[in-house]
């Protein structure tokens, strides 16, 4: 079975980010970039499915040349090959879904796994849009994935308020990975070395036949307001008074 996983290059979630003075983006100098953590979970899940059911895992990433670093990182985890969609302009979630739909048309995977969202802009939309465009069934926020022995359906569990929800979807389908789906493996040195030999195909948006026309543009980024220091209250009455009169939540 063939599994397609999408990965996005994002700034290290642990990096301290600064906004560029003109507010158009973040300062990237000295910032480390990594595979979006949810996408890493998606890669791990794909590898586990492959190990159980055999098949091929392919990753795709969109961006300029630097995203091939993240493709290599996925290859080093054990992914078989990569697709690099070379595109340097700006795009939104809808454009991403449109490009991915074209890749899916070409690759015809049985399962497409995405991270539930990217940790940079936290949009969390591409998976849903992709399912809509392709007319595929979707199972979002997966915390557990089981593929049937006949490889025709997937049983996908997600965490909901107060419990778990399990649904069954026919393949091909879209799955988006949540945090507790698995713990991604560490890239081993032999696999890092093998990754260099694995193929990465470069394609352009035009060659795919996709159209990029962002509906969403980022106007300005601002830092969250600085948190004011707290105060200690003397008594419960004091606290209730402040909640009523200052915070106005009672």
């Amino acid at each position: 079975m063939k599994i397609l996983v999408t990965i996005k290059r994002v700034s290290d979630p642990e990096a301290k980010l600064k906004i560029r003075p003109d507010g158009t983006g973040i300062q990237t100098e000295g910032v480390k970039f990594v595979v979006n953590p949810f996408d890493e979970i998606a890669v791990e899940e794909a590898l586990r499915i492959k190990e159980k059911h055999t098949g091929e895992v392919v990753v795709v990433s969109i961006g300029d040349k630097v995203v091939t670093e993240q493709i290599r990182a996925a290859l080093a985890m054990g992914v078989d090959r990569g697709i690099f969609v070379n595109y340097t302009g700006s795009y939104d979630s809808y454009d991403v879904a449109g490009i991915l739909a074209k890749v899916v048309e070409q690759e015809q995977p049985d399962i497409i796994i995405l991270g539930k969202q990217a940790v940079d802009d936290d949009m969390g939309q591409a998976g849903f849009m992709l399912a809509e465009m392709l007319g595929y069934p979707q199972a979002a926020f997966a915390s557990k994935v089981e593929i049937s022995d006949d490889k025709k359906t997937a049983k996908v569990t997600r965490e909901i308020d107060g419990g778990l929800e399990t649904k069954e979807v026919g393949l091909p389908c879209i799955i988006t990975a949540d945090l507790r789906l698995n713990t991604p493996r560490y890239a081993s040195l032999p696999n890092i070395m093998k990754a260099k030999q694995k193929p990465v195909k470069e394609v352009t948006v035009d060659a795919l036949g996709a159209v990029v026309k962002p509906h969403v543009t980022i106007k300005k980024l601002t830092e969250p307001p600085k948190r004011k220091g707290g105060v200690k209250v003397e008594s419960v009455q004091d606290l209730v008074g402040k909640l009523k009169n200052e915070a106005k939540v009672l």
């Binding site: 990182a73 080093a76 560490y186 890239a187 081993s188 040195l189 890092i192 070395m193 260099k196």
Partner: peptide
């Protein structure tokens, strides 16, 4: 380059 990549992996492991 390979070693740098691996050191990142080790760093996360640690």
């Amino acid at each position: 380059q390979d070693a740098r990549h691996f050191i990142d992996s080790v760093s996360r492991f640690v």
